[in-house]
Simulated assay, not measured.
Amino acid sequence: MPDRSTLGYEAEPSDVAAHLADFTDLLELYARASAENALLLAAARAATAYKARALALLHRDGYSYEKIATMVGISETRSGVQKLVEQGRTLLAQDAELGIVGTPDDAAPVHKVDGASASDLHHGHS
């Protein structure tokens, strides 16, 4: 089953190879590859959380589950999108409890489909 979280995006083999191309010592290569793996896995988890927050904020701004699915290009069912939105709401509520700026309690929606504002998503927690 394909990973739906990366639908429409694919890393170029040359870009992947470039991350590790400078190493000739095999132990150094192994250590670097391990470090890159840990970093990229953490980045992927954070990106998934940011995506969930974005969907929750789009829904808060008045977009239906069906419209959100169409806008972001996912083929989820209504219940699938709703589940992703709920995950985002949970993350945003946790952010609010931690006092992180850009929570669901913000006074007015500021998100635009063309990406004009991402202030609600720009913080250091996932």
Rank of each mutant, 00 (worst) to 15 (best):
L58A: 14
L92C: 11
T24D: 13
A42E: 15
H123D: 12
A47Q: 10
S117C: 14
K83T: 13
S14Q: 07
A116R: 06
G102F: 00
G80W: 01
Q82Y: 06
A116I: 01
R53I: 07
L55C: 08
H122D: 13
Y50H: 13
P109Y: 05
Q87S: 12
R53D: 06
T90Q: 12
Y9W: 08
A11P: 08
R53N: 09
K51H: 08
V72S: 03
D114W: 08
P13A: 13
P13M: 01
A118P: 00
S64N: 04
L7P: 04
H123E: 04
E36A: 11
K51S: 08
Y63T: 07
S79W: 00
V81P: 02
K51I: 05
D114T: 10
S75A: 12
S14G: 09
A69C: 03
A49T: 09
V110S: 14
L91P: 04
A47H: 04
A56K: 06
V85S: 03
G73K: 01
L57D: 15
G115I: 01
L92P: 07
I100F: 03
S5V: 00
P13N: 08
L55I: 05
H111M: 12
A38F: 08
T24V: 12
E36R: 00
L91S: 02
E36D: 14
L39T: 12
S5W: 11
L41H: 14
L55Q: 11
S64I: 02
A108Q: 06
L121P: 07
T90Y: 07
P2H: 10
V101Q: 11
E76N: 09
Y9F: 07
A38I: 00
V16M: 08
L92Y: 00
L91V: 06
G88Q: 06
A33R: 02
V101T: 14
G80S: 05
G99D: 10
T6K: 04
D22P: 00
L27H: 10
A18P: 10
